[in-house]
Write a protein that binds this DNA or RNA. Structure first.
Length: 277
DNA sequence: ACTCGTGTTAGCTG
DNA sequence: TCAGCTAACACGAG
């Protein structure tokens, strides 16, 4: 589930874990906690406190008073749960009835607080990640806060060795959707959000990034921001206007033409056969 | 039984 | 050296 809007929700949940003494940590899931051997994260953080919860794109990290930071990534389906001293969930609103149950065996990381509450990462597929002192070098500017000028530059131009991810190098011949999905170009856009923004902007996902003109790029920017705001306000990217039509036999909710399906940038992609031809 | 997937990344290729 | 693609990761859902 998680793209930028869902991760922002998770970050707010994580704020309920701040300023509480850490009394124990279960970091024994070697896959989710890689490359740290079991006990390493616990050794670094037990006795300290989390002091702030940050997010850039889909990457979250907590500051602590131990000299370390704690990186939290939800992967494809991770969920953050924080409980109070009564064991009750805090933050994140009421449980959604349609949501999958959180089986205990999907709990991949547990931080126990001295007050009896916990912070846990649930992730059935184990594609999420908990990491000590993560580097943010490969993470581009947050999609929600990037300026239109920087957006145009980074989508249509590659980076250089010195410049990092994008915006200052050669024209990028790759598909515009692949640029949107590249977290070093722009952080936070996932597969569904990319399809939604491109559909709203009426741009073919496979169009070469460097062949979009300024008008196209500005329209894409505006529609990406609208898609993001709408997803944050409505509770997730799955609430996008075109998302429910991403299936065989689906039709464009604007013009009624058939939706087409293919692979762009290595990901399953749906677009309107008429408006995004 | 078999394929796919709302994400990331190591490793390969040109 | 670097942009860009693919497989791998793990496991439930269709």
């Amino acid at each position: 589930m998680p793209e930028l809007p869902e991760v922002e929700t998770a970050r707010k949940v994580l704020e309920n874990a701040l300023d509480r003494e850490i009394s124990a940590i279960d970091d024994t899931d070697h896959w989710v906690c890689r490359p740290h051997p079991p006990g390493e994260i616990a050794h670094a953080l037990v006795g300290g406190r989390l002091t702030a919860a940050h997010r850039r794109g889909k990457t979250m990290w907590c500051e602590t008073d131990t000299g370390h930071t704690l990186g939290v990534h939800l992967g494809m389906g991770g969920r953050v749960v924080v409980t109070n001293d009564q064991g009750e969930r805090v933050g994140g609103g009421p449980e959604r009835p349609d949501r999958q149950p959180r089986k205990p065996e999907w709990n991949r990381f547990t931080m126990v607080f001295a007050d009896g509450g916990e912070f846990r990462l649930f992730d059935k597929r184990r594609l999420g990640r908990i990491r000590l002192d993560p580097s943010l070098d490969g993470v581009g500017p947050d999609a929600e806060h990037i300026s239109p000028t920087e957006f145009r530059a980074r989508i249509s131009r590659t980076g250089t060795a010195a410049g990092g991810a994008g915006g200052v190098g050669r024209r990028s011949r790759t598909a515009v959707k692949a640029r949107l999905l590249d977290q070093s170009v722009l952080a936070g856009v996932g597969n569904l959000l990319a399809d939604e923004a491109l559909w709203r902007a009426k741009i073919n996902p496979a169009a070469r990034a460097d062949e979009l003109d300024r008008k196209d790029l500005d329209r894409l920017y505006r529609n990406l921001e609208k898609s993001l705001k709408s997803a944050i306000a409505n509770g997730g990217v799955h609430t996008g206007e075109v998302i429910e039509h991403r299936h065989p036999g689906g039709h464009c909710p604007r013009c009624g033409a058939e939706m087409r399906h293919g692979t762009v940038g290595g990901r399953s992609t749906w677009w309107c056969s008429r408006e995004q031809a």
